[in-house]
Design a protein around this nucleic acid. Structure first.
Length: 270
DNA sequence: ACGCCCGCCTGTAAGC
DNA sequence: TGCTTACAGGCGGGCG
């Protein structure tokens, strides 16, 4: 569930808490956690490295390392967590990697469903779309993503090669705020609708970061200190099936497409 | 190329 | 009460 806002909150936490620290040891126990490369190579590169920066590309975290231009890349996928513990703290269940810092603190990668991963690379794998949290991202950039496409609007918003960072929660939220249906053919949006959607995406993501991300009922996402976010209390449609639309008071509807849920107000979104 | 669906995983919760 | 089933959804692969 971590999407752009949750990853951005973690990036900021890493920036203030661990950038400048030095790695003294790394233990990888999860057999799937490092799967793009030899886990031993990752351990070797990290051990002794100083952490120089905390970056983000879409939903990827990029932790800078001294002595080269490559970074530690972290993707949390569905259930991954990155937790900073004090010295002598125990390991939670499903802890797959422990990065020990010279001051005794440890970065724990915890991931029950094991979709998440770590690897060393200069960049995320594959092409990434524009980052909608970038202040330079403008309506014309969004228009370029949508123009001429038949695919459903929501599918394009969630396509990380075209726009990097939106997932199921924030695409539903942005579409509601913009008053647009998820299944509109992407290329059918008029200029004013693209402008509304651009504003809705920017506002939705900014509010979510402000509230330190969304932590759903299943308790998935927490920040670097293990604390939940608060933005779930500000969701306007997501997971509000049957409750009154905040704009027109008619019931919010949930649809299933493939294996995913989509929440919308069929009255306010067209 | 494009658009869409499934499988990967496990903890939680609802249903019988 | 205890078991079974559905569900959560990012992403890569594969299909039509």
């Amino acid at each position: 569930m971590p999407e752009l806002p949750e990853v951005e909150v973690l990036r900021r936490d890493l920036q203030s808490e661990v950038v400048g620290a030095q790695v003294v040891s790394v233990v990888v126990t999860g057999p799937r956690t490092v799967r793009r490369q030899d886990p031993g190579a990752l351990v070797a590169r990290l051990t002794g490295a100083r952490l120089t920066a905390a970056g983000r590309a879409g939903k990827y975290l990029l932790v800078g390392l001294d002595g080269g231009s490559d970074t530690l890349v972290v993707h949390l996928r569905m259930s991954g967590r990155l937790i900073l513990t004090d010295a002598h703290g125990g390991c939670a269940v499903h802890t797959h990697a422990v990065i020990r810092l010279s001051d005794g603190r440890e970065l724990h990668f915890v991931d029950p469903r094991t979709f998440g991963e770590l690897f060393i690379s200069r960049e995320p794998p594959g092409p990434m779309g524009a980052d909608p949290f970038d202040p330079r991202w403008c309506p014309a950039d969004l228009a370029r993503v949508l123009t001429g496409r038949q695919a459903r609007l929501k599918a394009l918003l969630m396509d990380q090669r075209r726009l990097a960072g939106l997932g199921n929660i924030y695409s539903d939220e942005a579409l509601f705020t913009a008053g647009l249906r998820f299944d509109r053919p992407a290329g059918s949006l008029r200029r004013a609708e693209v402008g509304r959607l651009h504003g809705a995406i920017v506002d939705t993501l900014a509010a979510a970061v402000e509230h330190r991300g969304s932590t759903l009922g299943d308790g998935g996402y927490v920040d670097l200190h293990g604390r939940p976010g608060a933005h779930q209390d500000h969701h306007r449609v997501y997971a509000r099936e049957g409750r009154p639309c905040l704009r027109c008071a008619r019931p919010v509807v949930r649809l299933r497409l493939g294996n995913r849920s989509t929440f919308l107000c069929p009255v306010c979104q067209s």
